[in-house]
C-alpha cells in the first residue's frame, strides 16, 4: 500500500472531505439561520417591523440591553482582577479559584438559576429578610442581572488567563523597576499587552449575556414588559403561535450572533497578526 504524507492525499479525497464538512455546516448552521430570517419575513416587511416595535418587544430589547450593559462591565472588572491575581501572584487557594471560575460553564444554567431562587426567593434563605426590607430580587430585574453575571463570569477570565500566563510577569517587573506604580503598570503595560484578548472576551461575554435563556428563565417570572428579556419574549410569542413575531425577535438575536462572529474573526486575525509579530 502506498503511504501518503499528510496533505498529499489524492484530489478526490480532498474534495469529498471538503464537501462533507460543507454539507454538515449547511445542514446544522446555515439552514437554521436562514430559516429564522425566512420565517421572520414570511408575511413581508411590515408584520416584521410591527413585531419588533411592539411595546412588549421593545421592553424586552431594552431590558436585554440593560442587563448586558451591567453584566459585561462587571465581568470585565471581575475577569481582569481574577486573571491578574491568578497569573501574577501565587497565593493559597489559587487552584480553587481557577476551578470556581469554570463552575458556571459546568453547571446547567437552570441549576444556576435555581440556586438564586433558593437564596433570594420568597421561600429562600434570605427571602424573609429581603421582603421585610422591601427588596425584590427574584422575579425582578436584580435577579436577572445576578443570574446573567453568574453565567457570563468565565468568558473574560477564561480568555485572559492563558494569555497572561504565557506573557509572564517580566514586563510588569520591568515597569516596576523603572519606578511605575501599580496603576501605571496596569494601564501602560498589562492592558496594552492583553487588549485583543480582552476585547474578544468582552464579545463572547456580551453574546452570552444577551442570549442567555435557562438561568434567566428561572429567575425572571416572565412578566411581560417588565422581566422578559429577548430570548424569553421569543419563547412566549412562539408558545402563543405568533410565529412571525417570535421569529422577528429571534432574527434580531441571530443578527447579534452574526455580528459577533464577524467581529470575532476580525479580532482573531488582528490577534494572530499581533502575536505573530512578537519575536
Amino acid at each position: 500500500m502506498r503511504q501518503h504524507a499528510p496533505g498529499t492525499e489524492s484530489r478526490t479525497t480532498q474534495v469529498v472531505l471538503i464537501l462533507l464538512a460543507l454539507a454538515f455546516l449547511a445542514f446544522f448552521l446555515v439552514m437554521p439561520l436562514v430559516a429564522v430570517f425566512i420565517e421572520a419575513l414570511k408575511q413581508g416587511i411590515e408584520p416584521f417591523l410591527e413585531a419588533v416595535s411592539n411595546p412588549d418587544a421593545l421592553a424586552a430589547i431594552r431590558l436585554t440591553l440593560f442587563i448586558a450593559a451591567i453584566s459585561v462591565p462587571l465581568n470585565v472588572v471581575f475577569g481582569l482582577a481574577a486573571s491578574w491575581a491568578i497569573t501574577k501572584f501565587s497565593f493559597p487557594g489559587k487552584n480553587l479559584l481557577l476551578t470556581m471560575i469554570d463552575l458556571p460553564l459546568s453547571v446547567s444554567p437552570v441549576v444556576s438559576g435555581l440556586v438564586f431562587v433558593l437564596l433570594f426567593g420568597a421561600q429562600g434563605l434570605l427571602g424573609p429578610w429581603l421582603s421585610a426590607h422591601g427588596l425584590k430580587i427574584i422575579f425582578a430585574v436584580p435577579g436577572i442581572v445576578l443570574a446573567t453575571v453568574f453565567i457570563t463570569f468565565p468568558f473574560v477570565a477564561r480568555e485572559l488567563i492563558p494569555l497572561m500566563m504565557e506573557q509572564g510577569k517580566d514586563d510588569e517587573e520591568a515597569a516596576l523597576s523603572l519606578g511605575a506604580n501599580g496603576w501605571q503598570t496596569f494601564w501602560h503595560v498589562t492592558l496594552p499587552n492583553i487588549r485583543w484578548g480582552l476585547l474578544y472576551g468582552v464579545l463572547l461575554c456580551n453574546a452570552r449575556a444577551m442570549g442567555e435563556f435557562g438561568a434567566v428563565s428561572v429567575v425572571s417570572g416572565h412578566i411581560r414588559g417588565e422581566t422578559n428579556t429577548m430570548p424569553l419574549h421569543v419563547e412566549i410569542l412562539y408558545n402563543e403561535y405568533d410565529f412571525v413575531g417570535a421569529f422577528a425577535v429571534a432574527s434580531l438575536l441571530a443578527a447579534l450572533a452574526l455580528v459577533t462572529l464577524v467581529l470575532k474573526s476580525v479580532l482573531e486575525w488582528r490577534f494572530d497578526l499581533h502575536s505573530g509579530a512578537r519575536h
Binding site: D170, D171, E173, A174, A175, L176, S177, L178, G179, A180, N181, H188, V189, P192, N193, A277, R278
Partner: peptide, 20 residues
C-alpha cells in the same frame, strides 16, 4: 524597600521590552 524605590537598573534576560 521595593524595586521601584531602590534606583536600580534591571536588564531582564528576555529584555521585557514593552512591545506596543
Amino acid at each position: 524597600i521595593p524595586v521601584g524605590r531602590r534606583k536600580v537598573g534591571f536588564v531582564f534576560q528576555q529584555y521585557a521590552l514593552f512591545r506596543h
